[in-house]
Design a protein around this nucleic acid. Structure first.
Lengths: 336, 336
DNA sequence: TTAAATTACGTAAACGTTTACGTAATTTAA
DNA sequence: TTAAATTACGTAAACGTTTACGTAATTTAA
């Protein structure tokens, strides 16, 4: 089909070894031959075959990324960062969409291993036993992104959910609120669910605000409808609340919508703080105050950690990325 | 490192040809050997090497996708559809983020060609001469997604922007509006800019509504800030407007935000219709009426067209996907 | 029971590179 | 000018598969 190194070699009257050496700039050839070969390459429009290279070099310059879903700003920003770092390191990224489905995940893992990607980034999801065993057996490098494993020594990059949630609640407290509710995500989610709940709880009790069952409402996930639902339930069980911490921006935006429907003014009657700082957050009405996760940077960090493993062979340290309160318009100072 | 077909062959006391035949289910072996070989494969945890397969079969079961940016719902939904269809066809997808940068785009194209992907999907961007020539020379199949080329015969999948914009404007007219403004995108964008402007204009004149320079405002792109800006300018030059067509959902949401800031009530004082039907659209306040592009399906269609080329070798017909008005709360019937 | 047909394999070449190991050609040193 | 050192190549094997072409073993037909 297309030309190979042999065609180039023949046309330039040199051996394929010479062509290869020139292509890889390894030295061992004269300037004259170099010029001659480069010219033939130009004429033929020869393109090296990365598949053949991958076979012999045992490096495909491709990494695989597994996401539970694709169409979410959160994942998208992570991917953006990963792609950027990968590109800077001369690699491509294959995206896999697991739908949080165990079977599908295993199939993807298998696929990535067969394709001999250089490494895997496993994002935003619980690392099951089965997954870990499978990829460890092949000794393929793996990084956890926006998730972590308590059971296995897999390096991860994440913010500290406990601290970030604490910061969110404290921000509300600092603004003078004392009757604060939380719309939490899934309370069985040990990565994104429990730590945020615990951080919230701790902030309240540290500031002598009693925490009871009426302060919190649990959802299935972290989605917009969960937020709509959540606000309605929270208002019912805790009508005096003056501020709310939603465990994700999507939920916070859902809460904003529900408040609007019911006729509660944000932030005048109730303040809302989110979590993530998605693109959405600055587009809402009112613009959402939230705690930022540096998603793009997290993606970059994960990819860079992978490349550092590939270079040095050493397991890098996990990275806790800094979170930050982004003040916009959805939280109002409360005068006593 | 990991085991090869040779290790399996040796351990099972057969030739590598036999192992290969069993792996590919081609027949030419007894049930007994099959069982024996499969058992060895199981024991060794052998994983076939897709790189070697790709070299000999000249099929990598990987496709490349080029996007101008990653972190946008629009792109994300397209990618979602592509990934789905690719997975159903046993292929993976490599994502490339061009940033609408010509040099970067060429580098990515080169990379994908060197990696011998089976085909390329070029999304949401103008296909430059240079790009077209480069990939055509290699005879690599290519599909245009959410864009099209007037100059070259590259199959595409898209909605009809002219018709969709016409439908949006007509929806406003049907709701009794006669003083209608448009916040358009880039007026030099021949794919997403001009046709939407023309469709809008045609709808007005077809319904005997005079169209003048005060009816429209032009932006750089199609982003949220463009929408914020756009509404402010539009209101200034066309204060009597009762309805607005924004050329993208992001712009529409921007318009909503700006209206909120200024203190104009949507939809009571002004109606807004968007374009795209992103996830955002149902999360806004009020929920956004918009014209839907079936983005996920478009992504799927593009990938499927690619696979059909790979199977049949024939160039498929381009596909115009249906658009649809999604009525939510941002447009209000106007009584005379 | 024997010949013909079929099945179940094995051998070796090929895919397009890289690279270890030679060796002829050139350059440098004496 | 000649020997030693260096440079500029070429040959061939290797990466891990698939597959065309044989052929030995088995099955079927007579």
């Amino acid at each position: 089909m297309s030309y190979t190194i042999k065609d180039v070699a023949k046309k330039a009257n040199v051996s394929i070894a010479t062509v290869s050496r020139i292509l890889n700039g390894q030295g061992g050839y004269s300037e004259k031959t170099k010029y001659k070969v480069l010219k033939v390459i130009e004429e033929l429009g020869y393109q090296p075959n990365a598949v053949a290279r991958g076979l012999i070099n045992k490096r495909t310059h491709t990494i695989g990324v597994l996401f539970p879903k694709l169409s979410s700003s959160l994942v998208t920003d992570l991917l953006d960062g990963i792609e950027k770092a990968a590109n800077d390191n001369g690699s491509s990224v294959i995206v896999c969409h697991t739908e949080s489905n165990g079977e599908k995940t295993m199939k993807y893992l298998q696929l990535l291993i067969e394709k001999r990607v250089d490494g895997i980034i496993f994002a935003s999801e619980i690392l099951k036993d089965e997954y870990y065993q499978f990829v460890t057996k092949t000794r393929m490098p793996m990084i956890l992104l926006s998730t972590e494993s308590y059971a296995y020594p897999v390096p991860f990059v994440k913010v500290n959910d406990f601290h970030a949630a604490y910061a969110a609640a404290k921000h509300l407290i600092d603004k003078g609120h004392t009757r604060i509710g939380m719309i939490s995500g899934n309370k069985d989610d040990i990565i994104a669910g429990i730590p945020r709940i615990d951080g919230f709880k701790k902030a309240l009790t540290d500031h002598n605000i009693p925490f009871g069952t009426e302060n919190i409402v649990f959802s299935r996930g972290f989605t917009f409808p969960d937020g709509v639902e959540g606000l309605k339930r929270l208002i019912k069980q805790f009508p005096d609340a003056t501020a709310i911490f939603a465990a994700s921006d999507e939920m916070a935006i859902g809460a904003l919508s529900a408040a609007y429907q019911i006729g509660i003014k944000v932030p005048d009657e109730i303040s809302v703080i989110g979590y993530d700082n998605l693109n959405l957050a600055e587009m809402s009405i009112p613009p959402l105050t939230t705690v930022e996760q540096p998603l793009v940077k997290m993606g970059e960090a994960a990819a860079e950690m992978l490349f550092s493993i590939l270079e040095t062979g050493e397991t890098p340290e996990s990275r806790i990325m800094p979170h930050k309160i982004i003040e916009r318009m959805s939280v109002k100072e409360r005068k006593k």
